[in-house]
Design a protein around this nucleic acid. Structure first.
Length: 256
DNA sequence: ATGGCTTATTGTATAAGA
């Protein structure tokens, strides 16, 4: 079973990229973030023609998450309980025996800002909610744009980024608490090349110079840990014309 | 150098992303 996550930064703009990527890579599941579409504008038909069922939790202009799957998506749920939020950041569904949670974590804008406070509150509520979900669904995968680089090795220039949003200690602590529920960063289960990132700023030729952050992650629950066969970042989508600023992270699970 | 790109909005400048 092959699962992947991709913050597409507008599915309206990136639908051709997504269709190309699906055709080339044939994943079983693809999670999308920042679709920036109302549900009524979601391209169900084009994805169906490509062989994928889809569920979407979207809104105009901002946020929006979707799960695409070649096999049926069951027990779909939108958002999380215990946290009132207008922002559409979470969608979950069961595929086979695996619970798939697709999330677009808040950006946080700047340390100390209102959006940063919202990010920390959201993280606390999300961790509590996910803990309960893991009780209900032991085989769980959490894929998405976490907007947190968990360690300095996930940052191209840790000194320049020190204390900034995405790497600040409260955010990293929240990430560790999430992992502390009994999850594993699938990317770090395997030997990886140094300077592996999933996002690069559009400006300053950041991609060309590999000035990036690893902020898109796949966490797996304990019962799935031994099923992990590989976890890789596919930089190809970032090389294309008119790319998203994020690229794809992929997980292969065996024996499922 | 607080810029630098990209996207969306009933736009022609502003907000947001990371």
């Amino acid at each position: 079973m092959k699962l992947a996550t991709w913050n597409v930064n507008s599915l309206n703009v990136r639908l051709p990229h997504v269709l190309d990527w699906l055709a080339s890579n044939q994943p079983d599941v693809l999670c999308l973030q920042e679709t920036k579409l109302e549900d009524s504008k979601f391209p169900y038909e084009a994805l169906h023609e490509a062989g994928y069922a889809a569920v979407h939790n979207g809104q105009k202009t901002y946020n929006g998450v979707a799960i695409l799957s070649r096999s049926p998506l069951e027990s779909v749920s939108l958002g999380m309980t215990g946290f009132e939020d207008e922002q559409k950041r979470i969608i979950s569904a069961t595929v086979g025996d695996v619970r798939v949670v697709c999330a677009y974590f808040p950006n946080g804008q700047a340390v100390g800002s209102e959006k940063y406070q919202y990010k920390l509150r959201w993280l606390e509520a999300f961790t509590l909610w996910l803990s309960n979900e893991m009780g209900r669904y032991p085989e769980l995968v959490l894929l998405g744009d976490y907007n947190i680089a968990p360690e300095d090795r996930d940052v191209h220039d840790p000194k320049a980024w020190e204390g900034q949003v995405h790497v600040s200690e409260p955010e990293r602590e929240a990430f560790r608490k999430l992992v502390g529920l009994g999850l594993y960063d699938a990317f770090r289960l395997f030997e990886q090349a140094e300077k592996a990132y999933s996002w690069w700023d559009y400006r300053m030729g950041a991609f060309r110079r590999n000035m990036g952050l690893r902020i898109d992650h796949i966490l797996v629950s304990e019962p799935l840990k031994s099923a992990c066969r590989s976890c890789t970042i596919d930089v190809e989508p970032r090389r294309q014309e008119r790319p998203s600023d994020h690229t794809v992270v992929m997980l292969e699970l065996g024996g499922l």
